[in-house]
Write a protein that binds this DNA or RNA. Structure first.
Length: 502
RNA sequence: GGUGACGUGACCGAGUGGCUAGGUAGAGGUCUGCAAAACCUCCUACAGCGGUUCGAAUCCGCUCGUCACCUCCA
């Protein structure tokens, strides 16, 4: 069964076929780096990490682009609004780009911790102002944008008159939009229609983040960078474009309009994929509501609604236990349950070595592989991928992995059943489990043991053996530690250890 | 006001016309020096009220409740 994904553009699940197989271009709207990332900011990257990992698993050649938005963005849609990055920079008395770099570094650290592979390209908006200006010029040339007083706006009504449909992604009619618009919003006087959106904004004299353009000094509009960078790195039409549900309107709607209105004349991406929100007590986690849980705080805890800290892998597992299109509510109860589930899955990973590493299996040959037991095991092992094919249903995939794990545990405790399955089927099933858990879902083991404490424990046994003059045991411990690069030192004050300097 | 979701067992969370999702918690059991893990068994729910149907948690209608987007937001 081929992979299918829910396409917001068509409002249904569609079979995924790349435009230019085996290449697949994926774009994910990345963070605006003016503050610390919170849990809500992590869901998209985790979901799209699994998606790109799975696409690679399916032998596609993926180019995954996740941008960094570092050109500010105003606090409100008004000329008087403050630039987020400038505001943060002023507060810390540093350069705006220092703010951007700082939070970019933090973001990368956190995403790596959460097991998200670095994107193939991580373009910064500030490095693509030229490309953005080019898109604006194309849109102006096509008669779909107009300049007013050093700013350029996209002409939404005109766009629709030409048979396009602004609102097709979020399923809105511009009539409804106009009816629902609050009249006389400050700073909108330059716009011909309240629906129009800025492609370029003139910088006020005190505005620090500014670039030269054909329309004077200013900065690019809030939706433009993704259109420009997606096009630059993934072509005029990419395969998949993703982001949070809250980006669907207006951000992605505007992106589509920009791409259609430019010389690309496309919807920018064939599949528009949106992940749902993370909630706290049923309410969306967001910066403006203040109910957010910063990732750094989440890992150490306690913070906000959470009484404890949770490791990055537990958080990842927790996120994957819900389907990406459903909202997921964060709580101590839910995270603690996730922690146990995650550890169970990890214990399964360690069990695989035991199952597959059993030499007695190798001699039993492949004849037994045709047994019903083998077929049953392989059927269990085939399930998780089937669920991933169905719109990346990670909770069902995990459920199927737990079913498979249960079977492994039974086999491990039952040599006769293990024999009946045979080594070939076993090897295939264990490899499937390992690949799906580690490579596709990206769940890796997080060692919990404290190495120094284990070492102290060992030194205790060493001291005991020494006291008993059990020198064979003493030598054994010394030898074993030496292979780990650790040497034991008997000093007058007691037993100590040091790193071997050899 | 417009648009779109959602309401599942103690908790989280899948499913979406007939077939026990899964995880966590709880009860009993097997195993076990103790314990843990594992395995087996049990607890088996779909907001309410109507309707369609041989059959509905799943489709339709109404009611109640919750949320999201329409302003920066993942």
């Amino acid at each position: 069964m081929p992979l299918s994904l829910y396409n917001t553009l068509t409002r249904k699940k569609e079979e995924f076929q790349p435009l230019h197989p085996p290449q697949v271009g994926v774009y994910l709207c990345g963070p605006t780096v003016y503050s610390e990332a919170h849990l809500g900011n992590a869901r998209g990257p985790v979901v799209f990490d699994v998606l790109t990992r799975y696409l690679r698993h399916l032998q596609y050649q993926v180019r995954y682009v996740r941008n960094i938005t570092d050109v500010g963005h105003l606090e409100s849609d008004a000329d008087t609004g403050e630039d987020k990055m400038e505001k943060a920079a002023r507060a810390a008395r540093i350069e705006p780009m220092q703010v951007a770099q700082h939070f970019t570094n933090r973001y990368r650290q956190h995403m790596l911790g959460l097991g998200c592979l670095p994107p193939d390209i991580e373009p910064q908006a500030s490095g693509h102002v030229i490309e953005q200006i080019q898109v604006i010029e194309e849109i102006i040339n096509n008669g779909l944008a107009y300049e007013v007083n050093g700013s350029v706006y996209f002409d939404v009504p005109k766009y629709n008159e030409e048979g396009k449909r602004y609102g097709k992604l979020s399923n809105r009619s511009i009539e409804d939009q106009l009816a629902g618009t609050r009249a006389n919003l400050e700073g909108q006087s330059e716009k011909r229609s309240p629906l129009d959106f800025a492609l370029w904004k003139k910088a006020s004299p005190e505005h620090i983040m500014r670039w030269p353009s054909p329309w004077g000094e200013g900065f690019p509009g809030w939706h433009l960078e993704c259109s420009a960078m997606s096009r630059k790195y993934l072509g005029e039409l990419s395969d998949i474009h993703g982001g949070g549900l809250d980006l669907m309107f207006p951000h992605h709607e505007c992106e589509i309009a920009q791409s259609q209105g430019s010389h690309a004349h496309t919807d920018e991406a064939r599949f528009w994929v949106h992940n749902n929100m993370i909630t706290v007590n049923g309410t969306k986690m967001s910066k403006s509501l203040g109910n957010f849980v910063l990732l750094g705080d989440l890992f150490t805890g306690p913070t906000g609604p959470l009484a404890f800290g949770y490791s990055p892998m537990v958080v990842r597992f927790f996120l994957l236990q819900a389907h990406y299109r459903s909202p997921v509510d964060v709580s101590d109860d839910a995270l603690q349950a996730a922690r146990k589930g995650y550890r169970k899955l990890m214990n399964g990973l360690r069990l695989l070595d035991k199952l597959a590493g059993d030499d007695s299996l190798a001699v039993s040959g492949t004849a037994a592989d045709q047994t019903a037991e083998a077929a049953q095991l392989l059927a269990l092992a085939a399930k998780p991928a089937e669920f991933l094919d169905d719109d990346l249903n990670t909770p069902r995939a995990l459920a199927a992995l737990f079913d498979l794990l249960k079977r492994f545990n039974t086999l491990a405790a039952n040599p006769a059943a293990l024999e009946a399955v045979g080594p070939a089927a076993l090897a295939q099933a264990t490899a499937t489990y390992r690949v799906l858990v580690q490579d596709v879902l990206g769940l890796r083991d997080e060692p919990r043991a404290n190495v120094e404490q284990l070492l102290e424990l060992t030194l205790g046994f060493y001291a005991e053996a020494k006291a008993d003059k059990a020198y064979d045991k003493v030598d054994q411990i010394r030898g074993a530690l030496k292979t780990q690069g650790i040497v034991i030192k008997d000093t007058k004050t007691g037993v100590e250890w040091a790193y071997s300097e050899e």
